[in-house]
Design a protein around this nucleic acid. Structure first.
Lengths: 118, 118, 118, 118
DNA sequence: GTGGTCTAGACCACT
DNA sequence: GTGGTCTAGACCACT
């Protein structure tokens, strides 16, 4: 299900969050559906359970999943909305920031070049 | 001195702010030097004095110029530092935001495409 | 709602800013609540829309309201915090400045007399 | 000549700076006049020489005195102007800050009460 | 002369 | 309808 690269510069728990979000947006993880438990995912992916827990805690904090002690973790009803809103907000912030940079005399080409080098 | 395009989508007062900043960064407007009065610039550029005033107020608020009622407007001692720091901060914010967008599953190409269309 | 005195030495737009802040601090304008539109307030108070706009722009710049073109102006989630922090900062600056004045040989009585005459 | 109180909450070096300034403003220490050496003042006042040095360094940094290695420290030609300008600047800052506090809804009485308690 | 505030009113893009 | 920008021009206090 999940495809993590432990050698990537992007932290594994961020990769996991991204993939859960991606699955929700694509309808592969609908509201109320259960996601793998920390322990099973840890075993399947050979990832330290603390890393899985860190990703799940962040998803829970953002209201994308909710955990029921003793039962497991489930996709919330508002998950799709929250993820969509979050991306829209970040893209809006990007537009605002780019506008400010252009006003500050930094060209689009300079900005794009910088992004390519991240 | 200043070169404004009233037909541009970028507001005239923002163009003026940018150009004052640019001149400061290039050393053409050193600390303590006086910039044209609201009225004289209004006449030279054929721009309403209110528009000039709006740009000058913003520059004053940001500490780049200081205006002395009855005397005129002057480049502050800290102008260069403030402008440089502001640009650095904005570029840092850009890096942070791009990282978050990448984690959110938006690709560099999508981001660059969006920037090109601003 | 708002109570402005056009004859006061304090500019009308500053009076308006103060009163919005006061209402926020007192909980009369909670986060996300909409404030009157530029035009409606202009009509109600018989104040030019540009003056209202000036106050709203400043409140927006400070993060106390956010304006959505075409929709209206709304109290931000952080409005209360921003206003409180700003006041605390200004009082701290006052303490520092007073200390420097005392060191410079200016007495408390002279300072208080000066304040009374502002 | 100088009258320092080691028990005061105001640091001794600040007391010394204040008194040099006061003497300059009153014309008791005219331009080019020599002030006591660090060592002699340390002995006369029974103050650690480092404390005297700290005050002199600050006065030198502000252009109020200049030290000639091997000869001693002297009041600069611009001392009086610098001290006067500094006090005027601080009083201007006070006016600005008080105005902002009043706009922020804090009353003169509250400000004066706070100052009395410093 | 200078900057700062304000009125009166137009036009724009956007919801 | 909404906010944002801009023109045209008046009046103020201050240098």
């Amino acid at each position: 299900m999940f495809n993590l690269d432990v050698l990537s510069r992007t932290p594994v728990y961020e990769q996991l969050i991204s993939q859960v979000e991606e699955f929700v947006l694509r309808g592969l993880l609908p509201a109320s559906s259960q996601i793998p438990s920390v322990r099973s995912l840890s075993a399947t992916l050979s990832i330290n359970p603390n890393t899985i827990q860190k990703a799940y805690s962040e998803l829970d904090r953002r209201g994308i999943i909710y955990s029921v002690p003793g039962r497991g973790c489930f996709i919330s009803d508002t998950a799709n909305d929250i993820i969509s809103a979050s991306r829209r907000t970040k893209l809006d912030e990007l537009d605002t920031l780019i506008s400010q940079l252009l006003i500050a005399g930094i060209t689009k080409d300079e900005i794009i070049e910088r992004i390519k080098n991240i």
